[in-house]
């Protein structure tokens, strides 16, 4: 007798033929949840192993990966040297899964601070898939995976504005993270 793997769920059988534009992906919300959690565990495990093997070099690797993604995504939107417009475009690039706002303390009048040839703006990331992945896998924040978003943001800003940028992590929390974006004018 042939051996059969036993499963709780019944296998769904259907017809399949090549199609130019697929109109269904199959699966319900539970399948999406399961797939998302598996991916979160994979990515978390990869980040942790990368850190174990490469030490602090892991941050640089992940940063570079994020930056490449940011540059690619930035190519899809209009170029601008206006910071506010760039932030709007950055919000479209990062999407709802990286929901962020500009932030300032109450004793500060403007969102941006000019420092010589640099402009500094604080960004508060409220929704973040990276944070959720870290919480799913029990990893601490500010690790290599946070550098993915760091690189992604910097890459996108550099692509949109055609300048050099850097992002520093000020504070990380379970519900929001505060980061400082520094834009260096005239430095490509």
């Amino acid at each position: 007798m042939e051996y059969q793997i036993e499963r709780e769920e019944k296998e769904v059988l259907g017809d399949f033929k090549p199609e130019l534009i697929p109109d269904a992906c199959g699966g319900g919300i539970d399948d999406y949840e399961e797939a998302l959690h598996v991916l979160m565990k994979f990515v978390g495990s990869m980040s942790s192993a990368l850190e174990q093997v490469s030490g602090r070099g892991a941050n640089a690797i992940v940063y570079q990966a994020g930056k490449r993604m940011g540059h690619e995504a930035g190519k899809m939107v209009e170029k601008t040297d206006d910071l506010e417009k760039a932030m709007q475009e950055l919000s479209e690039i990062l999407g709802v899964e990286f929901f962020f706002d500009m932030w300032k303390p109450t004793n500060q009048t403007e969102y941006t601070i000019e420092k010589g040839n640099e402009t500094v703006v604080k960004l508060i990331f409220r929704d973040c898939v990276v944070r959720q992945t870290l919480r799913r896998t029990g990893l601490p924040q500010k690790g290599p995976l946070c550098y993915l978003l760091y690189g992604y943001t910097v890459g996108a800003v550099e692509e949109v504005m055609g300048i050099k940028g850097k992002l520093d992590i000020d504070h990380v929390g379970p519900n929001a993270c505060l980061k400082t974006l520094t834009i260096k004018w005239g430095g490509k």
Binding site: H37, F99, C128, Q132, A176
Partner: peptide
């Protein structure tokens, strides 16, 4: 996260998604 007594409540905030 740090409060050992869970003594605080924040109202009218953006509650981040918890897809994890």
């Amino acid at each position: 996260e740090i409060c050992p007594a869970e003594a605080m409540e924040h109202k009218n905030i953006h509650v981040a998604k918890r897809l994890y």
